[in-house]
């Protein structure tokens, strides 16, 4: 009895001895090595090692993983054209639906960062037709929201984040940006009515009053000249001064409004890039 137990024990021991070496092949060691380089932010060298793995991977067991990782390296180096190329290769070599989906989402994220947002939206449209489970739809809405943030369309971004959850942090952020923005049309229109008003509305008070001053002065001079029947002088002042400052006032109102909106957007974009903790593109 005792002898038999010992025998089995020995057999198990011997069998287990021969396995560890076989289980972890050199290829997975190579993958680990490349992954270590990736996680220590040595992206250029990591790509070399992933490429080496791909080159000697005759069974294509690592095609998806390595291509996907190369894409991530390029993305981390802000080389989005190359990143998208490798994510597409990963997609071609994917072994499951889930892997195809991950590659597609990475392509979307690279497009967002590259600011080619129309392409990102196009891919999201395609994905939306294909998937219907709640988790995927949420994730698609999330990336759609980010895409709209990068097109500077905060209202649409907010709408898509709201589809995930009405109290979504990003939704609230987008709403705030939308509220803080000034209306370019309004600024322009009030400048047509009262010169300088648009500039004051956007917070450029000095410039606004100065504009108003110039317009009043040149308007007065023009009317004065016409009243005194100095038609040539009147025409000259009208075209060379009044018209110029009037047009300048409208242009300034529009420019200041646009610049202010960019500032508002940039403040939030900066926050999103540096402090926001959630998933980013």
């Amino acid at each position: 009895m005792k002898n038999r137990q010992l025998k089995y024990l020995l057999i198990i021991l011997l069998l287990s001895l021969s396995y560890p070496v076989k289980a972890q092949s050199q290829h997975s060691i190579q993958l680990d090595y490349a992954n270590t380089l990736f996680s220590t932010r040595q992206y250029f060298d990591a790509i070399t090692e992933y490429k080496r793995l791909l080159f000697y991977d005759s069974s294509n067991a690592f095609s998806y993983t390595a291509n996907f990782q190369i894409g991530k390296c390029y993305k981390a180096g802000a080389k989005f054209d190359d990143a998208i190329k490798y994510f597409s290769l990963a997609e071609l070599n994917a072994n499951s639906d889930e892997e195809i989906y991950s590659s597609k989402i990475e392509i979307v994220r690279s497009n967002i960062l590259r600011k080619t947002t129309s392409r990102a939206l196009q891919i999201l449209d395609e994905l939306e037709k294909k998937y219907s489970d709640k988790e995927k739809i949420d994730s698609l809405n999330y990336w759609r929201g980010w895409t709209y943030i990068f097109t500077d369309d905060w209202k649409k971004a907010s709408e898509h984040f709201a589809k995930i959850n009405y109290y979504n942090e990003l939704k609230i952020l987008c709403d705030r940006v939308e509220k803080e923005k000034v209306s370019v049309t309004f600024a322009t229109v009030i400048s047509y009515i009262l010169p300088g008003a648009g500039q004051i509305y956007t917070g450029n008070i000095f410039s606004g009053f100065l504009s108003l001053g110039w317009n009043v002065l040149s308007g007065y001079l023009t009317l004065n000249a016409f009243n005194a029947d100095r038609v040539f002088d009147g025409m000259a002042i009208l075209t060379l001064l009044w018209q110029r400052f009037y047009r300048g006032n409208v242009q300034n109102a529009e420019r200041f409004a646009l610049e202010k909106n960019i500032d508002v957007a940039n403040k939030t974009l900066n926050y999103l890039q540096k402090e926001y903790r959630g998933t980013k593109p």
């Binding site: 025998k7 057999i11 011997l14 001895l17 021969s18 070496v21 076989k22 050199q26 190579q30 000697y56």
Partner: peptide, 26 residues
């Protein structure tokens, strides 16, 4: 049985050594 086990152990250890030396070096 003991004879068999020893033989197995010997052959197996030889195999491990074989795979190690044949192992792919990138």
């Amino acid at each position: 049985t003991w004879k068999f086990l020893f033989l197995y152990f010997f052959v197996n250890s030889f195999l491990i050594a074989q795979t190690a030396s044949n192992d792919f070096n990138f």
